[in-house]
């Protein structure tokens, strides 16, 4: 008998046996361990966080989480750290940027897929080239553009930048989803009296819920974790969490690992929730078109 479950039959598709489940569990744990490490650290005191060998059993404390939002001044008074605003900024900027990118990207992709221009592929390629350069290469001209136009440090500036940043990806991904749809279905709708708006909103878009969800989540994760543009182009009021996180690393006493881990743990939650809510769509979106319908 194999370790892969009792009486496993040839070619039978069924629940995995204990053996496979254990192997998958172990691999999953390896992938998850850095995240687990951070989450554990966020509940540790400074001593526990720095202990060698690392402490796996310790008395958890919520002190770090409190210090994310309040710190003690030299006079011993509690003072807000502004981190609440930075969390709001991250959510607002990433949400608006992704929304904009997905709306524009979906419309553009529909155009590219259904009403191809002369030289359609060239246009698509040009759009993709915007993502071929590493951000660091374009940061100087972008910084200057933002300075001149006064967009520097404003919400609208960074939101537009993130929308632009995600647009290439959205257009390409959504175009591949539109290409998968049967044009017969759209022609049938036109024949039955639907105008172009209805064809797009009532026939095409509802079929691509999964694709839109997948595109949004990928764009969101990229935007959520973005650091370089946020560092240079946001101001005190529009700062996002990754930048704030980097700033919290200074101090006379070295890196405050517990505090940092607490910020990261909180920072994980929104993406985690969004991905969890959309996971069914996400899977369908990623595997869309791989199986003949």
């Amino acid at each position: 008998m194999s370790i892969f479950g009792k009486g496993r039959k040839k070619h039978a598709l069924r629940e995995a046996g204990w053996g496979y489940s254990a192997i998958c569990g172990a691999i999953g744990l390896v992938y998850f361990s850095p995240v687990l490490w951070i989450i554990l650290t966020s509940f540790k005191t400074r001593q526990d966080a720095l202990a060698t060998p690392p402490a796996f059993f310790f008395t958890p404390t919520f002190d770090n989480f409190v210090r994310v939002f309040y710190r003690l001044t030299s006079e011993g008074e509690q003072m807000a750290t502004g981190m609440g605003l930075f969390f709001f900024n991250s959510i607002f900027i990433a949400g608006a940027g992704v929304l904009l990118a997905v709306i524009i990207g979906t419309s553009a992709a529909y155009g590219f897929s259904r009403f191809p221009l002369k030289g359609n592929d060239t246009y698509l390629f040009v759009i993709l080239t915007t993502r071929m350069l590493p951000p660091i290469v374009v940061i100087v001209p972008i910084f200057l553009m933002f300075r001149i136009t006064g967009l520097s440090g404003s919400y609208i500036g960074i939101i537009l930048l993130y929308a632009m940043f995600n647009l290439a990806f959205s257009v390409w991904m959504m175009k591949s989803f539109f290409d998968e749809l049967s044009t017969d279905v759209e022609d049938a709708a036109r024949l039955e009296g639907a105008n172009e708006w209805k064809v797009f909103f009532k026939i095409c878009l509802p079929q691509l819920k999964a694709g839109i969800a997948a595109t949004s989540v990928f764009a969101l994760i990229l935007t959520w974790n973005e650091f370089l543009f946020a560092l240079l182009l946001t101001g005190n009021d529009t700062r996002t969490v990754p930048v704030a996180m980097a700033r919290s690393m200074g101090g006379q006493l070295g890196v405050d690992w517990g505090l940092l881990a607490a910020i990261i743990t909180l920072f994980l939650i929104p993406v985690f929730i969004v991905t969890y809510l959309l996971q069914n769509h996400l899977l369908r979106g990623v595997t869309f078109g791989t199986v003949k319908k």
């Binding site: 017969d184 279905v185 709708a189 039955e192 009296g193 026939i203």
Partner: peptide
């Protein structure tokens, strides 16, 4: 829409996101 011609496609061209009732209703709603 002015031609009064209906066509059944080789691929059937059903609206996959709508129920069968909504599929039948679609042309009437238009």
């Amino acid at each position: 829409r002015d031609r009064g011609v209906a066509m059944v496609f080789q691929t059937f061209a059903l609206y996959p996101h709508l129920s069968i009732r909504e599929n039948l209703e679609f042309p009437l709603l238009q």
